[in-house]
Lab assay of single mutants.
Amino acid sequence: RDLEAFAERFKQRRIKLGVTQADVGSALANLKIPGVGSLSQSTICRFESLTLSHNNMIALKPILQAWLEEAE
C-alpha cells in the first residue's frame, strides 16, 4: 500500500540523512505548517512502524513528506 511504502521510504531517507526520530519531530515546528507544531519521537516511531491508526497515518503523511522534501 502507498502509506506502507511511504513509511518505509521515509525511514530509510531519515536514517541516510543521519536524523533521529526526535530531530524530525522538533524540526516539524520549523516548517511553520498551519496547525502543526512539533511531534513526539514516539509518534514518528509509530508512523515508521505502521502502528498508528490509518487516519493518523493519512494525516501525518503530507506533513512528513514536507519535512523530507525540506531535508533533502
Rank of each mutant, 00 (worst) to 15 (best):
R1S: 08
R1I: 08
R1V: 11
D2Q: 11
D2E: 11
D2A: 08
D2T: 04
L3W: 07
L3R: 02
A5R: 13
A5S: 09
A5T: 08
A5H: 11
A7W: 02
A7N: 01
A7D: 02
A7P: 02
A7L: 00
R9L: 15
R9M: 15
R9K: 13
R9T: 14
R9E: 15
K11F: 02
K11T: 09
Q12H: 14
Q12R: 12
Q12V: 08
R13K: 15
R13N: 05
R14A: 01
R14S: 01
R14L: 01
R14W: 00
I15R: 07
I15A: 08
I15F: 06
K16C: 10
K16Y: 11
K16G: 13
L17Y: 01
L17V: 03
G18E: 06
G18A: 03
G18V: 01
G18W: 01
G18N: 01
G18H: 07
G18F: 01
G18P: 00
V19A: 14
T20F: 00
T20M: 06
T20D: 07
Q21R: 11
Q21T: 14
A22R: 10
A22M: 08
D23Y: 07
D23L: 07
V24R: 02
G25P: 04
S26I: 07
S26A: 15
S26R: 14
S26W: 14
L28K: 01
L28T: 04
A29E: 08
N30A: 10
N30K: 14
L31F: 13
L31D: 04
L31H: 05
K32T: 10
K32G: 08
I33P: 06
I33E: 08
P34F: 09
G35F: 11
G37W: 02
S38C: 11
S38R: 13
L39G: 04
L39Q: 02
L39A: 05
L39M: 13
L39H: 01
L39D: 05
L39E: 03
S40M: 02
S40Q: 07
S40R: 06
S40V: 05
Q41A: 14
Q41R: 12
Q41G: 14
Q41C: 06
S42Y: 03
S42L: 09
T43M: 12
T43F: 07
I44Q: 00
I44G: 00
I44K: 12
I44R: 00
I44L: 05
C45D: 10
C45A: 14
C45L: 09
R46Q: 15
R46E: 09
R46H: 10
R46M: 10
R46G: 11
R46L: 08
F47K: 00
E48T: 00
E48C: 00
E48V: 00
S49H: 03
S49A: 12
L50G: 14
T51V: 06
T51K: 15
S53W: 03
S53T: 12
H54Q: 14
H54F: 11
H54M: 13
H54W: 10
H54N: 10
N55F: 05
N55D: 13
N55M: 07
N56K: 14
N56L: 15
N56P: 04
N56Y: 07
N56Q: 15
M57E: 03
I58S: 13
I58T: 08
I58V: 12
A59L: 11
A59R: 12
A59S: 11
A59W: 11
L60G: 02
L60E: 01
L60A: 10
L60P: 00
P62S: 04
P62L: 00
I63L: 08
L64G: 01
Q65L: 08
Q65C: 10
Q65N: 06
A66Q: 10
A66R: 13
A66G: 11
L68T: 02
L68C: 03
L68K: 04
E69Q: 13
E69T: 10
E70A: 12
E70C: 11
E70P: 01
E70F: 03
E70H: 03
A71D: 03
A71M: 05
A71G: 07
A71N: 08
A71V: 07
A71K: 10
A71F: 13
E72Y: 08
E72T: 04
